[in-house]
Design a protein around this nucleic acid. Structure first.
Lengths: 172, 172
DNA sequence: GTTGTTGCAAATTGTTTGCACTGGT
DNA sequence: ACCAGTGCAAACAATTTGCAACAAC
């Protein structure tokens, strides 16, 4: 159960509703709502933070222990394609998954020291994005990669040991 | 030979000098300047872009084919610790290495489509950093993770095939 | 001569894939 | 009944590690 945000997301609309919507959407594409997919959605609904694959596997096991590891990978892929689940890339090569919340897309920041991911205001990078388009003609996707740095708790205790050493990380 | 920046870095000060400096610095710590470490520095000096481990292995092989893969990993780690080599995290779990250039630290942007990494102005994220400290007490390290988005060339050709499909990437 | 480093091979970790079978529609 | 999706095991990729031999000091 890693990489929680300091503060919880606003609660996602009832997971049951999400599942129903996804089922309908899948069927309309000739795909199917299945046990593993339900389990993944339920698991993500129960953990409003940002979960690594490993976290999801764990959380899914708690919901339905018959779901195989590889099905979690496949379900996440399918649900990301649908758009109900989103992923962000963190330092260290890990990827974190979360339900597309009612908040809509927003940037994230991850602490290099303790690994915690926090949500950031949606408009935080608007000016930077504008400057990038104007100067480099580069179209920024601010939500796709987490910014890196030191969280408040870790900055205070620096350079002592990490505040809840949650993630396997070397400090760069 | 992947993930080159569109424009080359300003040439790093003579690689020989760098090697000499590193040798001295290593010795002063009771460590040693060795064949693989020299080869890695030379290889990085010859390729001023941002290289994946795979790229470095390849470039090192061209310099000294007796250097083993695992030594490249170990040399990169040692040289990063020294500070002469820096790494940045890209989408997709890859890490890119480069000599700490005379430019000093600066942010990077990577195109999700073609994978090219480009250097950005050092001050680009200053305002964002200030806002993050003030509002979230989060200390940004703007150089550690590459921003993600679409480069000019790929944005033009979108949604056709990537401009030089350099990196193994799925488009998210 | 010490001992930090290396080459190599084996171990580890994380993810993907082929395939017969199950279960959603 | 069809076939998308699953469980499983095996394949695969990327990185790390144990250790004897080597070479920098």
């Amino acid at each position: 159960m890693d990489i929680h945000p300091g503060a919880a997301h606003p609660t996602v609309a009832d997971t049951g509703e999400v599942i129903a919507w996804v089922a309908k959407e899948l069927r309309s594409r000739g795909e199917r709502m299945t046990g593993p997919r339900t389990a993944v959605l339920t698991a993500l609904g129960e953990h409003p933070g940002h979960l690594t694959v490993e976290d999801v596997v764990e959380a899914v096991a708690a919901v339905d222990s018959s779901v195989h590891r590889s099905s979690v990978y496949r379900a996440l892929e399918a649900l990301c394609e649908l758009g109900v689940v989103q992923h962000i890339h963190l330092s260290h090569g890990t990827t974190a998954y979360h339900l597309s919340s009612i908040r809509g897309p927003h940037p994230h920041a991850q602490c290099v020291r303790c690994g915690v991911v926090q949500d950031l205001p949606a408009d935080l990078l608007d000016d930077v994005a504008a400057r990038l388009v104007a100067d480099q003609r580069f179209t920024l996707d601010a939500t796709h990669v987490a910014l890196s740095g030191l969280c408040a708790a870790c900055a205070e205790n620096w350079p002592s040991s990490p505040e809840t050493p949650i993630i396997a990380n070397h400090v760069h």
